[in-house]
């Protein structure tokens, strides 16, 4: 019960604290506008390259929009504590680490979902992409699974923040890997075989594929396996992330490098 309270109340307070400085205006500036302009960039780049239609880039980049708040929001779980000099207090507390960090992951998933839905909605209007009504609910599920998998990767990024101070650089690195190799902007068929295989283990790859098929009119049953694969990828990253958090925490305590890293 204590862990459940920590997970829900702790996560809620942590999210509120984030908005202590990130007000709605800043939310719009940092998340809502860039996600749409980034998508528009790739739609026009796609038109110039003539590789795929607008729908390909709209679906892929709208799903990728969930990655930005997830990766950077989760890394703030560590970097923010370090900045406010409360990281050591958090580490010495008897609270369950799993509850603490999963509590921070929950609002991150919701945030990624909201940004992704917003980007999808605006982009379909801007570029005239027709989404069948029957696809709306499965699309929402696909976006939720993708947001979760991005938060899983974000947890891993947060763990690396215990070891390396430059969490912004790490978050960017992960984001760019997704941008290039998750089948969002470059069709997997155009990548070398080994990169295409590597992409199967990345967040967004399966979600973007499912979203494209749904927009094209495929029934839910046709893409259910892809959505499940996206959720499994997210679960794997979340487990690896939580394990890495534990390992790096022990290592930091042993070497007294918690504030130094």
């Amino acid at each position: 019960m204590r862990s459940l309270r920590l997970l829900t109340v702790g996560g809620y307070i942590s999210y509120r604290a984030l908005f202590g400085w990130l007000n709605p205006f800043m939310y719009t500036l940092t998340l809502l506008i860039p996600s749409v302009t980034q998508l528009a960039f790739f739609v026009y780049l796609g038109r110039a390259a003539g590789v795929a239609g607008d729908g390909y880039y709209v679906a892929g980049n709208a799903l990728l929009a969930a990655a930005t708040p997830s990766l950077f929001g989760m890394s703030q779980a560590i970097a923010g504590e370090r900045y406010t000099q409360t990281l050591a207090l958090l580490v010495v507390s008897p609270a369950s680490r799993v509850a603490v960090f999963l509590g921070r992951a929950l609002p991150g998933t919701v945030n990624g979902f909201v940004v992704s839905v917003w980007t999808f909605a605006v982009a379909t209007l801007l570029f005239g992409i027709a989404v069948p009504w029957s696809a709306v609910a499965p699309l929402a599920l696909t976006i939720a699974a993708t947001s979760f998998s991005c938060v899983g990767l974000g947890l891993f990024n947060a763990a690396l923040g215990l070891r390396w101070r430059e969490t912004g650089v790490l978050g960017n690195l992960f984001l760019y890997v997704l941008l290039m190799f998750a089948g969002v902007n470059v069709p997997l068929a155009r990548l070398p075989g080994w990169l295409s295989t590597f992409a199967q283990g990345l967040p967004v790859t399966h979600g973007a594929n499912a979203a494209r098929q749904l927009v094209a009119g495929a029934p839910f049953g046709h893409v259910a396996a892809q959505i499940a694969a996206e959720a499994v990828v997210g679960a794997c990253y979340a487990v690896v992330g939580l394990a890495a958090l534990r390992v790096f925490e022990v290592e930091a305590r042993r070497g007294a490098t918690l504030e130094v890293a």
Partner: peptide
């Protein structure tokens, strides 16, 4: 943060990777 808002739009409109004619 405000500066960041201009990153993608300027990349898009300035004919860098995307021809302006597109």
């Amino acid at each position: 943060m405000v500066g960041n808002v201009f990153e993608w739009p300027v990349w898009m409109v300035c004919g860098l990777l995307i021809p302006v004619s597109v």
